[in-house]
């Protein structure tokens, strides 16, 4: 139960402002989700793989992490520490050994991707955004989430966005009613989730469908048949973002589009500061309909 925001920029010149715009949108959704907040930002690709990790004791865990990982991979690793998170840049072909190394070191992997970075923590959205300096981040698109936890714990790992595959992430407003059974079905296929959270199951479902060869559109289409309950999903990929609502479509969702951007939010309030919103096309996504924007 939550607030969702998403912003997909069509105009190159706006990219430096992505973090700033998303932060304002996120903070307006505080009432819908005061427990925790998170954001996924799709920034510049640098020819490296970005691994966002998190630690509750960053000073101890991140000290020398880049050097140790670089040694293990036999290649230099750059690290940017941002509060409780760090973004590690490793060679594109080093994902598996890097993740194995990080798992052994006991740091939590938030997400992996060529352009995606994920930052999420427990706390009020404004505080979370400030801790990570989201305002200063640029990029092509991003999605954010404020959480009012329903059944799973209020922890960093329980915060959204959830990422279960490279450059893919998902945020959710609603409550799935068959996620336990779906979690077991995915586990039988060798896909394991890290939390009790229903949204992570949604993310893992979508990733597994894509891994099996489905397009993102087909995977989102599949949620309508295979996931039960109430959901508005917003999902990000390296090149775009998509939206789907369950057939009952009780949870709020509103979109705005101009020549410069496509925006998504749980409430119109989140759009109030967007440039040109007065003349934007504003509409609500239809139930059981997949929307997708790609750059």
């Amino acid at each position: 139960m939550c607030g969702i925001v998403g912003l997909f920029l069509k105009k190159e010149a706006l990219r430096p402002r992505l973090g700033d715009m998303l932060t304002d949108m996120l903070i307006t959704m505080t009432d819908r989700g005061p427990d925790s907040a998170g954001i996924a930002i799709y920034g510049e690709e640098s020819g490296k793989l970005k691994i966002t990790v998190q630690s509750d004791t960053p000073a101890a865990d991140f000290a020398g992490l880049d050097l140790a990982l670089g040694e293990a991979l036999g290649a230099p690793v750059a690290m940017r520490v941002v509060d409780t998170h760090a973004v590690l840049n490793v060679p594109l072909d080093a994902e598996a050994p890097a993740l194995a190394f990080l798992d052994k070191r006991g740091v939590r992997v938030m997400g992996v991707g060529e352009s995606m970075e994920i930052f999420k923590e427990v706390g009020l959205p404004k505080d979370v955004a400030a801790r990570f300096g989201i305002r200063a981040m640029g990029g092509s698109h991003g999605i954010g989430h404020t959480r009012m936890a329903t059944e799973s714990a209020v922890t960093t790992l329980g915060a959204h966005p959830f990422s279960t595959a490279g450059d893919q992430c998902l945020v959710h407003n609603g409550s799935l009613s068959n996620h336990n059974d779906m979690r077991r079905r995915l586990a039988r296929k060798g896909i394991y989730t890290k939390t009790e959270n229903d949204t992570e199951v949604g993310a893992a479902y979508i990733s597994s469908r894509i891994a099996e060869g489905a397009t993102l559109g087909e995977a989102l289409e599949g949620t309508l048949k295979d996931l039960d309950g109430f959901f508005t999903f917003v999902t990000g990929t390296k090149t775009g973002f998509g939206v789907v609502r369950d057939p009952v479509a009780c949870k709020p969702a509103v979109m705005a589009e101009t020549d410069d951007y496509v925006a998504f939010a749980s409430e119109y309030r989140a759009f109030a500061d967007l440039p040109g919103i007065e003349t934007a096309r504003v509409w609500e996504p239809e139930p059981a309909t997949v929307y997708f924007w790609e750059r």
Partner: peptide
């Protein structure tokens, strides 16, 4: 309304 986030409003 549906859910706690709407209930708050």
């Amino acid at each position: 309304w549906t859910g706690p986030d709407d209930l708050e409003i």
